[in-house]
Amino acid sequence: MGKTTTSAALAMGLAQRGHRTAVIDFDVGLRNLDLIMGCERRVVYDFVNVINGEANINQALIRDKRCDALYVLPASQTRDKEALTKDGVGRVLEELGKTFDYIVCDSPAGIEHGAHMAMYYADDAVVVTNPEVSSVRDSDRMLGILSSKSRRAERNEAPIREYLLLTRYAPERVAKGEMLSVNDVREILSLDLLGVIPESKAVLNASNSGVPVILDTESDAGQAYHDAVGRYLGEDLPHRFLEIKKKGFFSRLMGG
């Protein structure tokens, strides 16, 4: 769907702007974030080790080699999902909150325990959606959980700020009426739009090489994520990549 791709990109984008940022993999058992971040060979301790007191947070955090302000807290590959306890997660987030400006939590798929743990303590939530029926429906369910099962909801505090990030968007298919448009999705979910990330070859290239796609500044997806970070930080930027790319004379000649 694009959650891990997005977590890596947003975390890198925030850190590049000088904010001390930690990105945490909540996908216990699968562990993909370290691959996308390109630090899989530097994993010694993980999130569950820290929760269980087998390592302290500074031993487990991996500092990004490209950006000093960015740290990765990997998930464990072996433990079962219940290893993430509400108390344990809360303690780790509190500890990180003392020294970090932003903590990005990469949620696992679905609306089960891991996803619940990733959202429970959130202040802001970025709902990553594809323009597809099942994905939009799941996002709406997640919105229901955000507004009823979070700590903020339980304590009757101000609700979590929710943002929509639509990814794998293909303007050509939208133009043909084959894909839900960004406005369709917005209308159904009624959320603020943080960004639209186009379907892009750059994403696979980035994950192949372990470089968050936002660092590929030439690419459409990289630029779209860059804008999304800017908007999150309050910049007023127009949405790009919503229209079909204009074909050059030659490709028009060849492609028909």
Binding site: E132, V133, V136, R137, V174, G177, E178, M179, L180, S181, D184, I188
Partner: peptide
């Protein structure tokens, strides 16, 4: 796409 929207 419009069917998808209606169903959703």
């Amino acid at each position: 796409a419009s069917i998808a929207k209606e169903r959703l």
